[in-house]
Amino acid sequence: MVVPLIYAVNNAFKPLDEIFMFPPTLFVRNPTMNNFIDLFGLLGNSWVPFSRYIFNTFFITGMGIIGHVLLASAAAYPLAKHKFPGKSFMFSIVVLSLMFTPAVTAIPNYMIMSWLGLIDTYWAVIIPAFAYSLGLYLMKQFMEQIPDVLLEAAKIDGASEYRIFWTIVMPNVKPAWLTLIILLFQILWGSDGNGFIYSEQLKSLHFAANQVVAGGIARAGAAAAVALILMSVPITLFVFSQSRIIETMATSGMKD
């Protein structure tokens, strides 16, 4: 499983003559930072400053995550703990939406985006991420295990539902936040604009990385370096949040 990843890590530190060596090797012999230096040289010369791509990816990822965690939690709370007309209908539609991929809705989505005037803005990527259905699903399942007694007690003390949500429910579902953060991070970090973003200065890090890779053989070293940078960020995040994510997944089951 990890062999391709080990290969990728090693390739990033191989000098060019080792990348193009026969027979090819898995491990690097004379590690060098040249690929990274090349990469930064390459990016320093790009038409749009490289820091711009970094900012774009961070902005999209950050806004998407904040919005999604807030909106999905707010929606998950009544679905998990309240009884009201339309509840089971709404939840079953969300579950149904887990059963198909975004490719199904790509064309109408483009039309809706253009109708809303969001084409070629960050928001075309950010706003749909708010309504990502797996996040709501996991959050709702996790909230169900909050003891009702806790909520009842707050209600007797005169707290409003909004207050209960913010001061009691939210602090209790921290593991689920982390899970939603990681899920969204994975999607948004790797996003290349989903076909909604055309302006070079709004494009993402992942798009810039693909440009480097598209340089072909001459850039094999820089491409390996960029692959390492792109994959190390989500993996590091997962290392630190693993136990919380597993805790959330324990409640992920679909009940009959």
């Binding site: 309240h82 939406s97 309504a131 409003s160 909004y162």
Partner: peptide
């Protein structure tokens, strides 16, 4: 209050998932 909490998410969900289908 349940509907108020649900509304922002559900509006976007309807707009970007249900309506497109």
């Amino acid at each position: 209050h349940s509907y108020v909490l649900l509304a922002p998410y559900m509006v976007l969900f309807a707009l970007f998932t249900v309506l497109p289908v």
